[in-house]
């Protein structure tokens, strides 16, 4: 049955899209988790939906609209955070809701048949065009290149922003860059799991990886691997259900639920192992 699935070009494209998305979500998700910017990331995902609406209204690829809106919101939120210092929570909530409202209004104004809204909200990985694969591959390369090139700096700012400021690092610029990377990743993931479920893939694989690693670089690698495995298995699982029971199991939610189960198992295992191995805690007590 697996071989049969793999013989369909649309399934191959879905699998490639999923694996490429896992790379971005492993790398960027690690920063999201250790820096605690999950809610900002959620805001960016929903803001990007405004761009989807603009794409429909103006007649260009909605993903490009999402990219534009996502990046603009990243810069907006990032600058506001640095200026305001406080109240970022409210700002994120506004961006979150206003982005959705803009998207819905623009789609309503757009001529022609109602587009596949569910696909943007909950993902539509089974019907990705080849040009989208090329787009994700390019974004992966860009994210990978920037993170490798600036790894030490991004790590330093995530670890201790105040110290980074004091020694004269360009903390503001680096923080904005990180938010821009989050925006790129969010746009990739919208296609895979949709606006509403983006946060799960951005946080859970990295959180699982944190159970088993204690440095950023290995955490990124493990997170990407976990994400890739969950997306692959989720994809096959929904395929099998569809062909066996002709039940239409949406892939995005299936992937998320699977990742959540893996998280629960990983957390329980980690807890059991560290309880049985007090040696790792010894150092904390002296």
């Amino acid at each position: 049955m697996i071989a049969e699935a793999l013989s369909y070009p649309f399934f191959q494209r879905a699998l490639i899209a999923g694996l490429l998305a896992a790379v971005a979500c492993g790398i960027v998700g690690t920063f999201v988790v250790v820096r605690g910017i999950a809610s900002i990331s959620g805001g960016l995902a929903h803001a990007a939906f405004g761009g989807v609406g603009l794409g429909y209204l103006a007649g260009f690829d909605p993903i490009l609209g999402a990219l534009g809106f996502g990046l603009a919101s990243a810069v907006g939120v990032g600058v506001a955070e640095q200026r305001l210092k406080q109240g970022i929570d409210t700002l994120v909530a506004m961006v979150w809701a206003v982005g959705m409202a803009v998207g819905i209004v623009l789609i309503a104004l757009a001529p022609g048949p109602e587009p596949d809204l569910m696909g943007y909200l909950f993902g539509n990985i089974l019907f990705v065009p080849v040009r989208f694969l090329i787009l994700i591959a390019c974004m992966d390369l860009l994210i990978g290149f920037l993170v490798i090139f600036l790894f030490r700096r991004l790590e330093a700012v995530a670890f201790d922003e105040e110290f980074a400021t004091v020694i004269g690092m360009r903390v503001g610029t680096l923080s904005l860059l990180l938010l821009a990377l989050v925006a790129l990743t969010v746009v990739i993931l919208i296609r895979v799991v949709g606006v509403i479920l983006v946060l799960a893939l951005l946080t859970m694989p990295a959180a699982i990886a944190r159970h088993w690693t204690d440095a950023l670089a290995p955490m990124m690698v493990v997170a990407a691997g976990v994400g890739a495995a969950c997306i692959t298995v989720g994809l096959f699982f929904s395929w099998m259900l569809a062909s066996m029971f002709s039940a239409d199991l949406p892939t995005g939610p299936a992937v998320i639920l699977l990742t959540a189960i893996v998280y629960a198992i990983s957390a329980a295992l980690r807890h059991l192992l560290s309880a049985r191995r007090p040696a790792t805690r010894e150092a904390l007590q002296d």
Partner: peptide, 9 residues
């Protein structure tokens, strides 16, 4: 090593 990333490090 983070200490070396600053200005003049």
């Amino acid at each position: 090593a983070m200490g070396a990333l600053g200005r003049g490090g």
